[in-house]
């Protein structure tokens, strides 16, 4: 059998998450005697595509049709289905991110497959096929059985460490039959913020809450984020007050993130906030209230004034970097 991995690119480049997906697939392939095919859609150079083979692909299929640039969900899922059929794939793996979540359900329906999203580890068993995922926004785990011959899963970020494994480097052009009516989306305008680290794939995230007292007090956190190439986040009250953009809100109803390091300044840690950050590897909390629930999930903490702690940390980080 074969496993198909959809490897999204970001402006023509792959990220660690892409290699996590391929490596995860390679690990399943090893256990089940399968091969791994990666599918790339978009303008990606062959030398970039070859990076995938460092993590265990047997073959890479590439689609370079510009019509896919609109990230049309209907067209892209049709292309993934075509690749799955061409490869006889019994398992299709996508990223549990914006695009993966948009495409996987469509792919599963079209292939009459069973879908499980947000998987956090290698399958618990293959027969029956059982995977583990988070439920209740990180407040619990569930083991879920997929009752269908073909399985589609989305893998959560940072849940599988990429392992180098070199196979061949076959790269083939793939041209699925597409009709114009498959492309349903027209992009009228694109606004990109450049030079900022994306919150959802930042390895380090610096975050502020109500304890920052006003939108004018963010200079220190921004400096720290710059020094660490970190993403900037905030709690819900901060985005509700308009101190920061809602795109920075992390929590149950905002973005759900899983960086290596999450540093919360002046965030008490309401259960809804923790739902969005509890998958972080290491959590640091700085809060003046020693009873704040954030300390129950934090690995390191300081009870104190954020405005006293932030400048000291910036100094220490500068020293560490020099």
């Amino acid at each position: 059998m074969s496993i198909l991995v959809y490897t999204e690119n970001w402006d023509g480049k792959f990220k660690k998450f892409s290699f996590e997906l391929v490596s995860y697939a390679a690990s399943i392939a090893k256990q089940t005697g399968s091969t791994v095919t990666a599918l790339s859609i978009g303008n990606v150079t062959d030398s970039e595509l070859q990076k995938l083979s460092n993590y265990g692909t047997n073959k890479v299929l590439k689609i370079t049709d510009d019509r896919f640039n609109s990230l049309d969900n209907k067209a892209m899922s049709k292309a993934i289905v075509a690749a799955a059929k061409a490869e006889g794939a019994k398992m299709i793996i996508l990223a549990h991110n914006n695009l993966g979540k948009a495409l996987a359900p469509r792919v599963a329906v079209r292939l009459q497959a069973g879908l499980e999203t947000g998987v956090v580890a290698l399958p618990v068993s293959f027969d029956p096929f059982i995977v583990k995922k988070k439920v209740f926004t990180g407040k619990a785990f569930a083991e879920v059985k997929i009752n269908a011959n073909i399985k589609v899963i989305t893998l959560a970020q940072n849940s599988f460490e990429p392992v180098e494994l070199r196979h061949s480097e076959t790269i083939e052009a793939f041209n699925p039959q597409m009709a114009d009516s498959d492309f349903t989306t027209t992009v009228k305008e694109t606004n990109k913020v450049t030079g900022k680290v994306l919150l959802t794939d930042a390895e380090i995230v610096v975050s502020g809450g109500r304890g920052m007292k006003s939108g004018d007090n963010w200079g220190g956190l921004e400096e720290m984020a710059d020094l660490l190439s970190a993403g900037m986040a905030c709690s819900r009250p901060v985005s509700d007050e308009g101190w920061r953009s809602h795109t920075e809100h992390v929590g149950q109803t905002g973005k759900i993130i899983a960086p290596n390091l999450y540093m919360a300044f002046g965030i008490s840690g309401a259960i809804q906030h923790l739902g969005g950050v509890s998958s972080s590897k290491v959590i640091v909390a700085v809060n003046k209230d020693k009873e704040a629930p954030i300390f129950e999930v934090a690995d390191y903490g300081i009870v104190g004034d954020v405005f006293m702690v932030i400048p000291q940390m910036i100094e220490a980080i500068k020293e560490m970097k020099s």
């Binding site: 879908l115 499980e116 059982i130 909390a285």
Partner: peptide, 23 residues
């Protein structure tokens, strides 16, 4: 139904937070 829940579990309790002084 193409999926079914087998079992649930709560996340393991985290180790105590290591505290550092404010200054």
């Amino acid at each position: 139904d193409r999926t079914s829940f087998v079992r649930f579990e709560l996340p393991p309790k985290k180790a105590a937070c290591k505290m550092v002084a404010e200054d």
